[in-house]
């Protein structure tokens, strides 16, 4: 077995892979940060820098604040998870706007809620970014008053707050 030759070839293949990987990541719009925040206790975990994921004023960082907003009944809570997950349990009174069926649901949603509605989006918790993606889509559809509840359904449920 020609091990020396094999090792040189492996280094060659791996070298090309590494160079290509960092080049594509640098130029691609889908590229991610080299290092990012992966500690759930510090916020939503994501592969981009936190500043890329949320603009600070949009975040609702703790469950109690979300509950205060909920109790005032001024906001519509909108669930970004799949319809199946929504049916299995959601924040009481929340609307479903599943990210994977957004185009099918948005028309009816817009007829029901005007553009100045205060909306709080959520998904399953700090390991998902779907609530943030939903916030961006709603913003594109003219909704300017949207916040993201980062602890999501799991955080809400863990506090024993109303679900259905």
């Amino acid at each position: 077995m020609q091990w020396n030759k094999t090792i040189v070839e492996m280094i060659f293949l791996l070298g090309i892979s590494i160079i290509l990987a960092f080049t594509v990541n640098f130029f691609s719009p889908a590229g991610i940060a080299i290092v990012s925040q992966w500690d759930e206790s510090l916020g939503v975990v994501a592969s981009k820098a936190d500043s890329d994921v949320f603009s600070g004023e949009l975040k609702i960082e703790d469950v109690k604040t979300a509950k205060q907003i909920y109790d005032k009944r001024t906001a519509v809570f909108v669930d970004a998870r799949s319809l199946e997950n929504f049916k299995n349990g959601h924040i009481k009174g929340a609307e479903s706007l599943p990210l994977d069926q957004f185009d099918n649901f948005i028309k009816a949603f817009k007829e029901k809620y005007p553009a100045n509605t205060f909306i709080v989006t959520y998904c399953s918790g700090r390991t998902c970014n779907d609530s943030q993606r939903l916030e961006q889509l709603l913003f594109d559809h003219g909704y300017v008053n949207v916040s993201i509840f980062i602890d999501g359904y799991q955080g809400w449920k863990a506090e024993g707050y109303p679900i259905e």
Binding site: L13, I18, A21, V24, V35
Partner: peptide, 10 residues
């Protein structure tokens, strides 16, 4: 992130 960047190209 490094794994996520490099592994697919390997």
């Amino acid at each position: 992130n490094l794994i996520a960047i490099v592994l697919p190209f390997v």
